[in-house]
Design a protein around this nucleic acid. Structure first.
Lengths: 204, 204
DNA sequence: CGATACCAAGCAAGCGCTTGGTTTGTAAAT
DNA sequence: ATTTACAAACCAAGCGCTTGCTTGGTATCG
């Protein structure tokens, strides 16, 4: 299963919108606008204009503006959970698994789903508490992947700090790359992954 | 110079507002509201109510709502730059200096100036580009403190990754603590600092 | 023919900010 | 000691605009 296969499997199960559907295109544009201007500064008129319809027509596809934000987040988490799962499964050994997770998360944050991942980090507060809870539940599976690997590395002494702390530090460190790292620049994603591994005192 | 002395020196120089002045109280409440609800969701009526005046009276103290956001950020950076400088100066040796910087930043993020630091991280985009540039210039001094220490640790081999990458990873990792770390809980700030040092493969 | 997708128009509410006038604090002049 | 002067701090009211969303109707298409 490569990345495209994973995406299409999710689309087939109706867990993620096809990028060429009306809904998919709207979510893509919404993610871009929310990242660029922030959720609150993005108006329903902006969103409608981005896909070439009238603002009122949006509400045929989504009940509220917030539902759009939520959909962006939910679909992104679903996709990334599947990608992370695959990354872990394919790697041999815990160091390699950790490296695969870091690489996969960097790719989520700085690659194709970059806009949506930014929204997930920086627009979290714009979600109502009820919606936050729902989205949080989806994250749990995903977080467990990290904790399993980090726990084993902690027991072997490869990583000296507590797994759940390391994971949270890494969440911040990797999320933040969106503010300074430029894919396609001097440093490649693989090189950046190496730098992260080295920062953790792990080499190879 | 302890923390209070540093604060009062800045107040004397008119670089930071006194916490008991009208302006200081407004900035404190603004930071809290901006963190809790976000800049856009916080109305001038909210801000005014928080300090017990009419919304129109706000504009006697600040020209625009954005000027309030900017003042929160500027004053916070000024204070924290001074605190970091003191932390570096007081520590002996580069490992100790790094630890002091990490501890000081964790304290900024999770201690007294917590609200304002959150605003600095999560409301950055709400600043106009011109204001962003001004605030960014203030950060440079502060960032140089980190780079000096990290460069020396890189040369001695204590830290295996490039200084500017490590600093940026740390910026993210430490900023993110605001989302999960609770001061006064099980883990103290000093213990958290240790965990960060261990995550970097540094002990003692 | 019925559902799906859309448009044109606009409503009610909330927004940042302005305005004109009043109170309050302070310090010099009487 | 009282008056005068004046600026800083504040209020009450509301203007003009934008916001998310609704409504009633019209294409489009299997």
């Amino acid at each position: 299963m490569n990345q495209d296969d994973i995406l299409h499997a999710l689309i087939a199960d109706n867990l993620v919108s096809a990028p060429d559907s009306a809904r998919g295109r709207l979510l893509k544009e919404a993610a871009r606008l929310f990242r660029d201007k922030g959720y609150e500064r993005t108006t329903v008129r902006d969103l409608a204009a981005a896909v070439g319809i009238q603002s009122g027509s949006l509400f045929h596809h989504f009940r509220t503006k917030e539902a759009i934000l939520k959909a962006v987040m939910v679909e992104t988490i679903r996709l990334n959970t599947a990608l992370m799962q695959a990354a872990v499964d394919q790697a041999d050994g815990d160091r390699a698994k950790l490296r695969a997770l870091i690489y996969a998360e960097l790719e989520s944050i700085n690659g194709q789903t970059s806009e949506a991942m930014s929204v997930l980090v920086f627009e979290w507060r714009s979600l109502s508490p009820e919606a936050q809870e729902e989205v949080l539940a989806l994250r749990d599976i995903y977080e467990q992947l990290w904790l399993d690997v980090l726990s084993r590395l902690y027991e072997t002494g490869d990583v000296a700090a507590e797994p759940f702390v390391v994971r949270r530090l890494l969440t911040g460190a990797l999320s933040w790359t969106v503010t300074w790292y430029r894919p396609g620049g001097e440093m490649g994603m693989s090189e950046l992954t190496d730098q992260v591994m080295r920062s953790l005192g792990l080499t190879g």
